[in-house]
Computed example of a mutant assay.
Amino acid sequence: MWERSLVLSAPGKVILHGEHAVVHGKVALAVALDLRTFLRLRPCGEGRVCVRLPGVGVVRSWDTLRLQALRRGFAGKRWEEETAARSPSVEQLDTLKEFAGISAGASAPESLATLAFLYMCLAISAKYGWTEEELTLINSWAFQGERVIHGNPSGVDNAVATWGGALRYQSGKITPLKRVPMLRILLTNTKVPRSTKVLVASVKEKILKFPAIMNPVLDSIDAISQECQSVLEAMPANPSPEYYPVLEELFDINQHHLNVIGVGHPSLDRLCRVTASHGLHSKLTGAGGGGCGITLLRSDTSPLAVEAAKRDLCACGFECWETSIGAPGVTLHSSSSLNAEVLHALSES
């Protein structure tokens, strides 16, 4: 029997540059954040498999014998034949939904998270490790979870979570950046909901309506991503303060471009104004239309200035976290490497 507990973590992710343009074949830069999701695996002597996902309010358990029977009799084929390269079939997912009591059309985060857990619980063997081959396997299975939840994902989220650092994404090809500085940022959630699908469609419509205007804007966003990549890869060897004004200008220019293509929002404009009043530079990250924004912090930005900016952002009704980009990827922790706050949170879950 598996006798010891394991604690693992993986980083969050934001798009630094290239939102929406990436849909049209341009370069996007995705970076790992030092805001991590932790997973604790521990043996259970009750003959059950239990999962607790406090972030989405999931607390479920299943009898081990029932899971084993499901695996053996799953649609007449063996789970051992499953690979991380094969997409989950509709039949498989429907069977798991029925098993877990999830309605056929359910799209709530808790339902999709439960479905992804069950699928991978039954499909993955117990082997784990940290060689490049094994990281590739982790990434492949994480992509399967993305497929269960999102249907046709890009593969960027799972790749950043697995390898960390920063990645260049273009036309389906994912390339890790060679070197990445640990830049400090503020991540701010405006709490304004939006539909990525609707925003992507609206950008496409505008490109079709005004191609001579919009295509040069996308080319410019592409150039911003590539210029930012050059700066990020140069900084570790020469950590000069002169790079920060360049990165700040790129933030400003890209934010204006994103407003031009129609994915801005008054809440994001307000975020940029608030941080500008403290001498800081911000842009939206992701789909836009609300959602989140990121603010670059220079290496010499004082803690008092950061706290003042956070206070003013929170006064707008936003949520704000100070973190850094370029964080490491999936990590296996020892108890001694975890701080008291993380250990307490894990003990409560």
Rank of each mutant, 00 (worst) to 15 (best):
C44I: 06
F38C: 07
R40G: 01
L39Q: 04
R42S: 14
G47P: 06
L35S: 10
R48I: 10
V49D: 02
A30G: 13
V56P: 04
V59G: 01
V31H: 05
L39C: 15
L53C: 11
L33H: 11
V58D: 05
L41C: 12
G45H: 06
E46Q: 08
R42N: 00
C50V: 15
V51Y: 02
L33D: 14
L53E: 00
P43R: 03
G57V: 08
C44F: 07
L35F: 09
R42L: 07
L39K: 00
R48Q: 07
L53W: 08
R40A: 11
R42I: 00
F38E: 03
L35W: 05
V51L: 12
A32Y: 10
A30E: 07
G47F: 04
V31Q: 08
C44Y: 06
R40S: 10
A32T: 09
V59L: 12
R40I: 14
E46M: 01
L29R: 04
A30V: 10
P54C: 05
T37G: 06
R52Q: 11
V58A: 05
A30L: 02
L33E: 14
R36Y: 11
L53N: 02
A32L: 11
R60H: 04
A30W: 02
C50Y: 02
D34Y: 10
G47C: 06
P54R: 11
L41W: 05
V31E: 04
L33V: 09
G45M: 02
V58Q: 06
A32V: 09
G57M: 08
L53S: 13
T37W: 08
C50G: 09
V31K: 04
S61G: 06
A32G: 09
G45P: 10
D34S: 15
C50A: 15
A32F: 09
D34P: 07
V51F: 09
R60V: 12
L39H: 08
L35N: 10
G55H: 13
V31D: 08
L29K: 05
R40Q: 14
L33K: 11
C50R: 15
R42A: 12
L39G: 09
R60T: 07
V31T: 15
P43G: 04
C44M: 09
R42F: 05
R36Q: 07
R36K: 13
L35A: 12
R52N: 03
L41M: 12
C50N: 03
V59N: 09
R36W: 09
L33C: 13
A30R: 02
L41N: 00
R52P: 00
R60A: 11
D34T: 03
S61H: 10
V49L: 13
L53I: 14
G57R: 10
G55I: 00
R52E: 07
P43E: 00
L41H: 01
G47Q: 03
V49F: 11
V51T: 14
V59R: 13
V59W: 06
C44R: 15
V56A: 02
A30K: 00
V31P: 03
L33T: 09
S61K: 00
E46K: 05
V56D: 00
C50I: 13
R36E: 05
G45I: 00
L35M: 15
S61I: 01
R52A: 11
G47M: 05
T37P: 02
P54K: 06
V56Q: 03
V51E: 00
L39M: 14
A30N: 06
